[in-house]
Amino acid sequence: MSGEKKTGLIDAKRRQFLGDAARTACGCAVAATFLTVWQAQAKALPADAIRPPGALPEEEFLGACVRCGLCVRDCPFDTLKLAELGETGPATGTPYFTARDVPCEMCEDIPCVVACPTGALDHSLTNIDDANMGVAVLIDQENCLNFLGLRCDVCYRVCPLIDEAITLEVRPNLRTGSHAVFVPTVQADFCTGCGLCEKACVLPESAIKVLPQRIARAESAEHYRLGWEEKAKAGNALVPGVIDLPDRVPDATPFEPVFKPGKGRP
């Protein structure tokens, strides 16, 4: 009799326990769902928020960075800042910089990376020239002074990797017909995304801007081959016996003396 009572009591206790556990689990499941949805929404990194040098790809970065701010503290130029709650910016507490405000000065010893205790900033980055924070893009060709035919050249001159990451490409000035245009041209493979050019652009709103790779860069189709490169590799024409037709140039070409299509730079 008392044994029965006892098992009854244990049953009631177990029921109570299971009930409590189920309730708590449901509550946690609801919270987890909200958190997952929120995190999915907070993932969108704005285009002008650039991660510090060596930052892992965004997806991995968000799972590695503990939002401690040590990278921010060790940046001697106060380039980096931590995203604050409510800012329409990167995930709360994660480090980033806005190139037009304070660009990355590309420190040789990369103190931000060294300071990172988690490796969210990859410690295998030891040469700052290999950094890949983003890519500068000369985004407004209508207002860029060089495109207008002047010799501003400021973005080109400030680049720590001048003539590698950014070059001046000479083009005919079609407006005057007798001058050249020196087009600041970013070589994406070399550009570190430091943003010094964006910061230095003399216009009230920069004509050249650092953008994240995902926005700035296209991807060549896997099966594309560049004929001239393949030809150089092979050492001879890939399709033998093709006749080289003469280049057709418009009759009254105004830039005849300086510019010959197909002949490269004068």
């Binding site: 987890a32 958190l35 997952t36 929120w38 907070a42 997806e59 968000l62 995930a91």
Partner: peptide, 13 residues
Amino acid sequence: VAAGTGSLAYELV
């Protein structure tokens, strides 16, 4: 949630 999203999601709140 951290395991599922691969991100420190709780740090958002």
